[in-house]
Design a binder for these strands. Structure first.
Lengths: 146, 146
DNA sequence: GTTAGTGCAAAATCTTTGCATATTT
DNA sequence: AAATATGCAAAGATTTTGCACTAAC
């Protein structure tokens, strides 16, 4: 699916979340939608530049933070590096397995924590809003090379 | 338990991990041992200074990174901020519930992921080394105030 | 026309690194 | 004595912010 073709399709989505529709937000949203793995701000920036060369990195950060405020996006942080990764907050969410050697990520199906969170809410009286789960290790290839 | 009293007790522990015993490492290790929640580098720094005023922040980072290399410490990252948090890599590990309003953390008992990781290793052929799980929401007090 | 978003450059924050000195083994 | 760790200051990296300008409603 080509990013450019879809620009403009998400007006209603933005309106629903009470934020203005701009071409930068449209673009960043499409990039995240079309990515099957979390992206760094820098990666989003580079992909954005392919379509709109004048976009700035601060816009990327501002848009991503707006999306986070609206719960459209979640922020992760890859294990040993100090950079944030962003991905759409998909309703039926799963998680990723991260290879700490080659940094490859693999989707793992359904999130195992739903039931657990319910019981936690009861025992702790917290209002649980979400969670971040990152599982890491060595992928089959890197495992062999060890 | 007073941190200072215990300085020097961990010589063998360091030797076992093949790293030199220094008073800075001893101190940082004790601080982490006596904390029931993850600490930022800055927090470790401030606590360290109470005992050894001449310690430097770069030493904190270097020691923490050494500990991470040796699997003595794990690094987390608190949801919306961009700072890393460090805590001892306890063998029988649980996780924390984080209040996104007041930043309080609450221990939750046993980690629910052990069994799940085993089945994941089978289905994905990964060698799973660890995971990070952060569950967040509103604590009872902040929940009321909403 | 008003409100909100963007680009740019500069600042802020967190973390790492080079080097001379000090400490450990 | 050799190897490693530390403190300091400086550099790096990532993220945020102030301001003038532009685009969206």
């Amino acid at each position: 699916m080509n990013v450019v073709e879809n620009l403009g399709n998400n007006r209603d989505f933005f309106k629903k979340h009470g934020i203005k529709h701009t071409k930068q937000r449209e673009l960043i949203f499409e990039i995240l939608k079309n990515s099957n793995k979390p992206l760094s701000a820098e990666e989003v920036f580079l992909k954005s530049k392919e379509v709109d060369d004048s976009i700035s990195l601060s816009t990327i950060y501002r848009v991503l933070n707006t999306f986070i405020d609206k719960d459209i996006v979640v922020k992760l942080s890859i294990v040993e590096d100090n950079i944030s990764m962003f991905e759409l907050n998909r309703v039926d969410h799963g998680h990723h397995l991260l290879c700490i050697k080659c940094k490859k990520t693999v989707d793992i199906g359904h999130c195992p924590l739903g039931v657990y969170e319910n019981s936690l809410e009861e025992t702790t009286d917290f209002d649980i809003v979400g969670h971040k789960l990152e599982i890491y290790g060595y992928c089959p290839e890197c495992k062999k090379k060890k």
